[in-house]
Amino acid sequence: MASSGSPPGGRVIWITGLSGAGKSTLARALMPYLPGAVLLDGDELRAVLGTPHTGFDRQSRLALAMIYARFCKLLADQGQTVVIATISLFHEVHAWNRAHMPGYLEVFLDAPEAARRARDPKGLYAAADQGQVAQMAGQDTAVDLPEIPHLILNTAAVALDQCLDRLLQEIRSA
């Protein structure tokens, strides 16, 4: 028998930071604690939702980030818990998210550049240093660091399990 009424409230946990900050790592570590949640990763979303010709300049990144935001809202409006790991560092996007997303929780991973470069999981910093990558967010393409995130985690100074504990505490108190 079908139930009546609207779906239970969803929420969006928006994990943001520069490349190498640990967004995907933290998001994946969080998933076992949120049964039934949907994980969206910015790199995977770009491949699925972006066109093959989507650029990396500010306007292209902003347009794609707004697509991510609307997609997260669509899922959350249907009662889903959405965990998204994405750079998407734009004040316009963060403001839109706060105004439109149910249960929005913004988590900023603020790792120093030296730590991000040491990790360099995709080899982007090394490639940028050799002139092989242009328009890298936070390097030669300006970003807007979050003004009022719900949680700031320095993933270079705090171990993954401690970051996860702090994030879970924030989720439970929200």
Rank of each mutant, 00 (worst) to 15 (best):
Ile67Thr: 12
Arg116Met: 15
Arg58Pro: 01
Trp96Asn: 03
Ser6Asp: 04
Gln135Val: 01
Ala29Val: 08
Ile13Asp: 03
Thr51Ser: 06
Val143Trp: 00
Thr81Gly: 07
His94Thr: 05
Gln169Thr: 14
Gln162Ala: 13
Asp77Ser: 11
Leu105Phe: 03
Leu62Lys: 02
Thr86Glu: 01
Ala2Gln: 09
Leu153Pro: 11
Ala99Ser: 04
Pro102Glu: 15
Ala37Ile: 05
Gly17Val: 09
Gly5Cys: 11
Phe108Arg: 00
Asp57Phe: 00
Tyr68Ala: 08
Ile148Leu: 11
Met31Ser: 06
Val93Asn: 06
Glu44Ala: 13
Ile84Ser: 08
Val48Asp: 08
Arg98Thr: 14
Ala99Trp: 02
Gln169Phe: 09
Ala126Cys: 01
Leu75Gln: 11
Glu170Ala: 15
Glu170Ser: 14
Val133Met: 03
Pro7Arg: 06
Phe90Asp: 01
Ile152Asp: 00
Pro52Glu: 14
Ser88Thr: 02
Gln139Ile: 15
Asp129Phe: 08
Ser4Asn: 07
Pro102Asn: 15
Leu105Pro: 04
Gln78His: 15
Cys72Glu: 03
Leu168Asn: 15
Arg98Trp: 11
Leu39Gly: 06
Trp14Thr: 01
Leu30His: 13
Leu109Asp: 10
Asp161Thr: 13
Arg172Thr: 04
Ala47Glu: 10
Ser173Lys: 08
Tyr33Arg: 11
Tyr33Asp: 03
Ser24Val: 12
Leu153Tyr: 13
